[in-house]
């Protein structure tokens, strides 16, 4: 494990309609550091700037001001094409409503990031099946999203997020569309990824209860991080150390 933080944000400001009359500042100066192997949550009410922050963390958008280093690379100054590459190689997205492509099978959905990484067809399939095995979806590999339940779809989406071995898994309300039981299954899966595969995970949610299941909780309010506390969840190995 290197000492370079996975996320290092300093004084991130995000404005929309810059220079126009209706200019809107959503983030007022966010500082955020996430170390490798951490499982962190960002909690905030709707309208707190959660989605904007997520877009910036996920390299979908650039900050207006401030610096953002992802694995030591300056994301704030990248062009669109380099951002695409960063998303492809370094970030695994898990969305509230899964965002699987409805017309293709689970395994082909999992393959998509590899498609843009230039991996051969055979290798794509092999690695996708490997990931589906981790999330326990091998049996349903050839099913389309419409033939799967919400929990199953989210597991496929997690497999997709994992496939390019990203530095960061960014989950946006991953249980939001699920009932509490399947929500727990998905959270257990995140814990497994964190423990067994040493993944760095950032969970973005409005639910404090869910956030409690992470190691560190950052509270976002009105475009600023206003609080930081420990979650109830601790890494098992750390517990044995203690």
């Amino acid at each position: 494990m290197s000492d370079t933080p996975v996320i290092e944000m300093k004084n991130i400001i995000k404005r929309y309609y810059e220079g126009q009359e209706n200019e809107l500042e959503i983030l007022h100066g966010i500082g955020l550091t996430v170390k490798e192997g951490e499982f962190v949550s960002v909690v905030g009410e709707s309208g707190s700037g959660k989605s904007t922050l997520m877009n910036i963390i996920g390299a979908l958008d650039r900050p207006s001001e401030g610096s953002y280093y992802l694995n030591g690379e300056n994301v704030g100054e990248m062009d669109d094409e380099t951002l695409s590459d960063v998303r492809n190689r370094k970030i695994g997205f898990v969305f509230q409503s899964f965002y699987l492509m409805p017309r293709i099978s689970a395994v082909r959905n999992v393959e998509v990031p590899l498609l843009y990484a230039g991996v051969s067809e055979k290798e794509r399939h092999r690695r996708a099946m490997e990931q589906l095995e981790i999330v326990g979806m091998t049996q349903r590999a050839d099913h389309k999203p419409s033939e799967l339940s919400g929990g199953q779809n989210q597991r496929v989406a997690i497999a997709r997020a994992m496939i390019n071995n990203p530095s960061l898994i960014l989950a946006d309300e991953p249980t939001g569309a699920l009932d509490s039981k399947t929500g727990h299954i998905v959270m257990d899966l995140f814990h497994r990824l964190h423990e067994e595969y040493k993944k760095t995970i950032v969970l973005i949610t409005h639910s404090r209860e869910l956030a409690q299941e992470t190691q560190r909780i950052l509270t976002l309010s009105d475009g600023l991080i206003v609080g930081e506390q420990q979650g109830t969840y601790q890494k098992p190995d750390k517990q044995t150390e203690a």
Binding site: G58, L60, D80, E81, S84, D85, R87, N88, R89, F93, Y99, L100, M101, V112, P113, Y116, A117, R160, N164
Partner: peptide, 16 residues
């Protein structure tokens, strides 16, 4: 549009 968004989020470049 949604599909394009997903593909872009997953790393598709403009040329793809």
């Amino acid at each position: 549009t949604r599909e394009i968004g997903i593909r872009k989020a997953l790393g598709a470049r403009k040329k793809n």
